[in-house]
Amino acid sequence: MRMDLIEDAHAIMSMPYDERLIGDPNTGVIHGGAISALMDSCGGASVFAHPENGSASVTLDLRIDYMRSAKPGERIFAEAHCFHVTRTVAFVRVVAWAGDQKDEPTATATGAFSFTRKKKEPA
């Protein structure tokens, strides 16, 4: 996996097509689990990159909806936005796509991560 962008509650990660990740031998399509792992990591990265984040966080839950299979041979991308945080929970949306097909997502996900706010600087 490669980190392509990480800034201000926003992250993009990607991984190359790899025959070891094939989930369906009939089509050569990558296993959903591999895409889940990429989306989970990318979601976690967007939480980490939130300006108010104070420590490492863990995934509480992640729901993934699969729109279409990822075209075999293409690099898989995931882009996550941490769109809301409370004192203890961060909410994240993630989109995954193959190659340059960003307008035709492979999968979308919403997740909740644990969150700890940065301690306020003493005045």
């Binding site: 989930g23 296993h31 689990g33 591999a34 889940s36 792992a37 989970d40 990591s41």
Partner: peptide
């Protein structure tokens, strides 16, 4: 391993295993 300081297994690996089991 996803978090080397704990250490803990990567959540994505667990999710992938759960999904594989279902299929």
């Amino acid at each position: 391993i996803g978090n080397p300081t704990l250490p803990a297994i990567h959540g994505g690996a667990t999710a992938a295993f759960l999904e594989t089991t279902a299929i």
